[in-house]
Design a protein around this nucleic acid. Structure first.
Lengths: 244, 244
DNA sequence: AGCAGTTTGAAACAGGTGTTTGATTCTGTC
DNA sequence: GACAGAATCAAACACCTGTTTCAAACTGCT
């Protein structure tokens, strides 16, 4: 009466049949990354996989399960291909921050993976599926924790956890910008790629920017030219309404 | 033989009929922001607008034109409600940067507008429609230029245009993070809102972070502890492949 | 009131979607 | 070689989508 059994349920890995299963995962990765979950049609995926329309439902139960499987696999793949380099005891926090930023950028922009992981994540931000909860638990939260450790080493014991979170988001925000805003970047600076080609430039810039920021914030009163308080209009819509 | 005339083509603004046209724009804004262009159904929009299914096609020609109109209007609205405060000659660059960041955050997170503009922009990043070109030309490019002017005043004439662009993207990346990554933030830090409520916190943090960064980068050789070069493994896939 | 033009409404259309079906082929095992 | 189970296939199903149709209601004139 409930769902039927689908092959993926049987965890038996030695199955001889799963050539089409693999083909579906690969085709699915391409299609989902290109057009997103809802634009993707199982007919298209099956065509590219050289399989029948019924293949998705036979091997995965439904389209959404295939999607979740693809997303998880792409995430594992990106993480395996571009892991955070192990830090020795002599590795400075600054170097570890650069490593973190470079690995993160590689994972989301990587040309080898056609930036599939980054694109799928960006889509997941805009219309989250059930797969996101798993991804946050298994991948994002550990990364967030790793970044917090690095930042803590940089800023010392002073700043609160809350401050540390904000610092982390400033770093990650810079990274993800190049992943999430490609359509605008292409239109705003045409002919100037902000993708895997420029990975090193971006890594070094974001690292330098963030390090300067963190160091500047850690030793607060450097204040070369304290801004002279101006009238300060905190009410936003007060601006310029007076043309009648 | 070609398209029929649709009311919006006639620019006559005084028309008495456009109550349903307005209702469609309003309902469309809600629905498009909530579920995105492709998930949105004209039936749903029309139901909320208290109009017939045919209303969208009658008043706008098709769904995509309605969408473009809604997007443009929301953009204008966000810009009008949270304009960049005019800067007097005595306004410091630092203050102008804060103004820019606050206005930007307000536009994308604003509760008054239910963050509609920000959400629609985020979706546009993931699956751009034709409406994006217009938006870049009319709204994003001017904003980008305004930010560049502020940053130029902060860093002086030294840094290249290219560097200025990177600085700008670091600032905007931090801002948009809170707009684009809400689904992750909610899961990662539940019960801790990173939305309009915390607008002031976010503004001050991003401003302080960016100012510290820009100042640190402008006077390069502060270098309190130059990182000692470590072996530096640049080849990413060298990791751990050896299990046979 | 009468009438042309505009605007609505219910219903239908045409096309695409994920999924299911049931027969057919393949595969490994006795 | 026979046979059970797994895997594939073409076809159909059920549903939802944007859009069209065309008659009915409404509107502002004269």
């Amino acid at each position: 009466m409930p769902d039927k059994f689908h092959p993926q349920t049987r965890s038996a890995p030695g199955g001889a049949h799963d050539a089409t299963r693999r083909a579906l995962l690969d085709a699915g990765a391409d299609v989902f990354a290109e057009v997103g979950f809802h634009h993707a049609t199982v007919r298209d995926i099956c065509r590219r996989a050289g399989a029948n329309v019924a293949a998705v439902n036979y091997h995965f139960g439904d389209k959404e399960t295939l999607y979740a499987e693809v997303l998880a696999e792409q995430s594992r793949l990106a993480m395996a291909l571009h892991p955070l380099p192990a830090a020795g005891p002599d590795t400075t926090p600054a170097q570890r921050l650069e490593d973190f930023i470079r690995a993160f950028l590689q994972r989301v922009l990587s040309a080898e993976l056609s930036a599939r992981h980054g694109r799928m994540m960006a889509r997941e931000m805009v219309e989250p599926t059930r797969a996101l909860d798993r991804l946050v638990a298994e991948s994002i939260r550990p990364q967030s924790a790793a970044l917090s450790v690095i930042l803590r080493d940089l800023v010392g014991p002073g700043p609160s956890e809350e401050t540390l979170r904000l610092l982390g988001m400033s770093v990650v925000g810079q990274i993800l910008f190049y992943c999430h805003c490609q359509p605008v970047l292409i239109r705003l600076f045409p002919g100037m790629p902000f993708n895997a080609e420029r990975l090193d430039t971006l890594t070094l810039h974001i690292t330098a920017f963030s390090l300067a920021a963190v160091r500047g914030l850690s030793q607060p009163p450097v204040a070369p030219a304290r801004v002279p308080r101006r009238p300060k209009t905190p009410s936003p819509p007060a601006g310029r309404r007076r043309r009648s």
